[in-house]
Amino acid sequence: MNSRPVSIKDVADHAQVAVGTVSNVLNHPSRVAERTRARVTAAIAELGFVRNDAARQLRAGQSRTIGLIVLDIGNPFFSSLARAAEDYAAERGSTVVLGDSGHDAGREARYIDVFEQQRVQGLLISPVGDLTARLEALHSRAVPVVLVDRKDDLKLFSSVSVDDEAGGYLAVRHLLDGGRRRIAFVGAGASIQQVADRMAGARRAVGECPDATLEFVLAEAMTVLAGRAAGERVVQAGPARMPDGIFCANDLLAIGVMQAVLLIGGLKVPEDLALIGYDDIDFAESAVVPLSTIRRPTELMGRTAVELLLGEIDDTQSERRQVVFQPELVVRGSTGSRITAQI
């Protein structure tokens, strides 16, 4: 049994035409007589020929594919952003191919290599660390780059981000305005720029309140399980060190912390401990105590990133733009008195 893919030559032999005629049917059908075109089309259907667009694009040196590398596709924020980017790219005749770096710089580098080898139109990336040199090299080879969920202060690349420092401030200011004074911030380390920015906002808010304190609780990752583990450590530290307000660097961590507080600590939310997250993922509103959070315009970020990238593809001399969206406070039961849960 021959498992070799059907080639253009196979189609040409079957239809008894030249290879160039098959190529014209595929790419310039108006150049081929109707009867010949019908014979070639029938041969394609009979043989099950599938055109190799990747090879064609490599020969042409161009593509209709956009590479997108995110930090964690398991985070609903990134999956929603990716979906919005895909939808808008499709409207503009392009396709988004997704890569998940998993916060791993080596894995991120491999994705960049693969996308460059595939001659993508351009790259959207939420970088793990400082990729300035690598991305500049891409740009010099006519692969435009747009940073996603990260502002480029050097203005070398266009970027789409949210003012996370303002978001951190909003979150902790809300806890302070609710009378909370022993604040804990749960995050996966300042090496993640978004976490560092949210922490900076939290510090600024606490600095405005002389009798308030801020403690950093390290989470191993930005996941529900990591949040639950961090929450367990908070509960096990005992009443003397128990915060009365917790700000988590994302909603997944906050949901995990809530589970630990309710199931292990036996505490009431929000009476004993107010809790606020970040991102406003779908699960936030449906948590056992609906989660207060900081909302980011996820879908708008995805569409804007593609729009900026396609703009640079159309005009390589276009000005680099830094689009920064403002976060929004969403108040739900986890920081208010409307809804209480105790397990």
Rank of each mutant, 00 (worst) to 15 (best):
R4N: 06
I8L: 11
V11F: 05
V17A: 07
V17D: 01
V25M: 04
N27A: 01
H28D: 01
T41C: 06
A42V: 13
A45N: 09
E46T: 09
G48W: 12
R51A: 11
A54D: 01
Q57C: 09
I69R: 05
V70N: 03
I73L: 13
S79L: 10
S80V: 14
Y88L: 14
T95R: 11
T95Q: 14
S101M: 09
Q117E: 15
V120A: 10
T132Y: 10
L135H: 07
A137K: 15
R141Y: 09
K151A: 09
S158P: 03
S158N: 05
S159I: 05
V160L: 07
A166N: 07
G168T: 08
V172M: 08
R173P: 02
H174N: 13
L175C: 08
R181L: 12
A188G: 15
S191Q: 15
I192N: 02
Q193K: 14
A200P: 06
G201V: 08
R204D: 05
G207S: 13
E208H: 14
C209S: 12
C209E: 12
C209G: 02
P210L: 07
A212I: 03
A212M: 04
T213N: 00
E215R: 14
E215P: 03
A219Q: 00
E220H: 02
R228H: 13
A229Y: 01
G231C: 03
G238K: 05
C248K: 04
C248P: 07
L252Y: 03
M258R: 00
Q259Y: 06
V261L: 12
L267Y: 06
P270Q: 05
P270G: 07
D280G: 07
I281W: 01
I281T: 06
S292D: 10
T298D: 05
E299Q: 11
R303Q: 15
V306E: 08
E328D: 14
L329P: 04
S334T: 07
T335P: 03
R338Q: 12
T340G: 10
A341N: 04
Q342H: 15
